[in-house]
Design a protein around this nucleic acid. Structure first.
Lengths: 313, 313
DNA sequence: CTGAAAGCGCTTACAG
DNA sequence: CTGAAAGCGCTTACAG
């Protein structure tokens, strides 16, 4: 690979001068500049970002952790993060953790060694140590779509889950449902807990309590669209019809939710907008050399489609 | 951040010695080793991978380009690549290009600057310059699921598309279909072309030619599952029934394909196995300082489900 | 077994 | 306007 030195020699100038024309920050004589630019073109020189990083003491890279890239919501989040980060000259390292603590810690270690400038967490284990590990090394962290947290050093970006659950329950209650269940991957995912709390609160307001899905529920609210879709599959394989026997509601409004075969009633959450904000916040914090400490809740909108209906009789 | 120097001072030894105990390659006196390890633990030292990379002249990072992470096949490919690469101590940089030449070139530039050790391409524009740009800088490149290529420096890993298309057409022909169409994002995606060729060849064997989907096709073969699912949506919104009016076949067997509401007839392709092989090949090539130059075609299996049936009368 | 020194490829004051 | 020099945080022969 050609180096700055190669270019300098070819152009008959010093390394400093080549560096100056590349960064365009210092004055360089027109003629010299042209000579250097020609040398760059001729050698096909690309600056070595690793050397630059070492000197600059920043990697210009951020990390993003998602529980499952196969879930289109997280895929959109990852794509959004990538796009926004690239636009700012940052690379992104993805970690698909499946909310496994061990995988989370491995990712943390790798990222610390690679000196990522910040981390966006889209999902993590229930009592995850991830944020603390990172924050203790002064790496800014923002939680996207994960709810609030005790640590004040943590940035938080989320949907208004309480409002969303209230809207869902109101919709179901209005249709006549009184036996409602909630499904989520409790054990693994942190966010599940939170939406469940909102769900319970909305039920309580109507003097109801959650029941188990197998306990004769006429409606089930899922933690997200993928789980709603999996629930439909499970119900239908048992011979139950959706929505005739059971209504199902999701969360996210992934592209598939509006498919003719699915037509899922759900709540729209804007993964792209969320990722854009997250990248912005985390990079701003990194540059200012502080934590994010910003909390924001995005609005959310109920989309009624064809998986919810009045309960039988 | 603590550096090697900090640890050395704390342990009262030289940088070399600290480096030696960390890498465990040189003999170090037991007592010294313990002192150094204690100093590492006390300071929470993590080696700076950037400095190490600069010295080693490799980034220990690879790139992967996918057209659309939202397609579960590519998500699985990306996850598989990540897992396999991490296990070998490599980081992975993802580029979601949507097969846009400009985005591809941007990714190439960023990756060259960051000195990635190799690149896996899961999809690219039709006349993409991506492979050449990379190969010309001696970065090993492997094409996954993209067909063969003229450049002998390119590694190739693919499914046996011709066999797959033959199996699909045989199945459809056996059911009585004679008016078959193929759908794909021709214009953008490179791989589409190839599967279409296999499709045409299989038809020709039966003295048939492809017709347009709107030309009274009784069966349509899609380039992949996501396009098959989108096709079902489009057909059903027009009031046609699948498979009663039109049969539909996909490619990939993404998890959704077996869903009760979809039950797509498709061909199974193993994204995870493919990604594992790809990572292995590209990293091996990188370490040996040569290109991949390996061609391999994975077997494929037709899965008949409920989107294919005998044509009407 | 241990350490001084050079060097990976850049950037950045600072002289001139 | 240009260049010599120091330094980012490591590794790696090489002396001792």
């Amino acid at each position: 690979m050609t180096t700055l030195m190669d270019v300098a020699e070819r152009a008959g100038v010093s390394k400093s001068t080549v560096s100056n024309v590349i960064r365009g920050t210092t004055m360089v004589a027109e003629e010299t500049r042209l000579r250097v630019q020609r040398a760059i073109a001729e050698t096909g020189y690309h600056p070595n970002a690793i050397a630059r990083s070492l000197k600059a003491r920043t990697s210009s890279a951020i990390g993003i952790v998602v529980p499952d890239l196969t879930n289109p919501f997280y895929a959109q989040l990852a794509v959004g993060v990538e796009r926004a980060a690239n636009a700012l000259g940052y690379a992104v390292l993805t970690a698909n953790t499946e909310c496994l603590p061990e995988t989370e810690e491995q990712a943390a270690r790798a990222w610390i060694e690679r000196r990522v400038d910040g981390v966006i967490i889209g999902g993590m284990a229930l009592a995850s140590t991830l944020p603390k590990i990172l924050l203790d090394r002064d790496i800014p962290v923002i939680l996207a779509s994960l709810g609030e947290f005790d640590d004040p050093r943590l940035g938080v970006l989320d949907h208004d889950d309480a409002a969303a659950m209230e809207a869902i329950v109101a919709h179901l209650y209005g249709l006549g449902h009184r036996r409602l269940a909630f499904v989520s991957d409790h054990l693994r995912e942190h966010a599940g807990e939170r939406r469940y709390l909102g769900f319970k609160a909305a039920l309580k307001k109507r003097r109801l309590v959650p029941i188990a899905i197998d306990d004769g529920a006429t409606a089930v609210v899922a933690h997200n669209d993928m789980q709603a879709i999996a629930t439909i599959d499970r119900l239908e394989r048992r011979g139950l019809k959706v929505p005739d026997d059971v209504s199902v509601v999701g969360f996210d409004d992934i592209p598939l939710a509006s498919h003719s075969r699915v037509q899922l009633t759900t709540v729209r959450s804007d993964a792209v907008e969320m990722s854009r904000r997250a990248v912005d916040l985390v990079i701003k914090a990194a540059r200012a050399n502080r934590t994010v400490s910003h909390r924001e809740f995005l609005d959310v909108q109920l989309i009624v489609r064809a998986t919810t209906a009045r309960p039988r009789k």
